[in-house]
Amino acid sequence: MELSKLTVVTGHYGSGKTNFSVNAALGIAAKGGKCTVIDLDIVNPYFRTADFGDMFRSKGIELFAPVYANTNLDIPSLNIPLESILADGGYVVIDVGGDDEGAKALGRYAPLISGFADKQMLYVINKFRYLTKEPADAAQVMLEIEQSSGLRHTGLVNNSSLGAETTADTVRSSLGFAEEVSKLTGLPIAATCAVEGAMPAEAPSPCTVKRYVHNLWE
């Protein structure tokens, strides 16, 4: 998919924002673009974008994360110079924590982000998450994130998956759900994400991704 200079990735809790953000950043880097990833997740203690620091470094992607991310300190201290990062002219991907709670951290940067022209804010959804399996519930969380962050979304990312058990049928069974959320929110489907081999032919805006977030025994 075509990315703006600034991509803000939000989503309901556990929708797969991090995997999408990692894919987006690697996609930019593969095309030779300068890319900065900002891990703004103040909700998850582990399994987060900051886990991919080494991989990012090897691809020339810069990573900013909360000061104590992946340490034993559970303090959401943010020290991210977003203004200078944006002024730098490269691509920026911001991975926001889940739900309205996670989006609170984004609110701090809302004035700066509002004033930036070339941007998109994507709401990631996954039909297989228990509390947001109804389109109305997924749409409600989107509104809560907008209220909490003071920013408006521009598109949806259908990232419906069952982790390692995802097949084309899994993704196919989510297409109606995504359409319904799109109707309820008025947001276009910017991407349908699936791993290679699991993308149904009829998926709108197909975006083949790799699964980077996985367990140690897989």
Binding site: R129, Y130, K133, S161
Partner: peptide
């Protein structure tokens, strides 16, 4: 139908 859940969420729902 299967859902994708965190272990903590599965404990709570169960």
């Amino acid at each position: 139908e299967k859902s994708l859940m965190k272990g903590n969420e599965a404990l709570a729902e169960a």
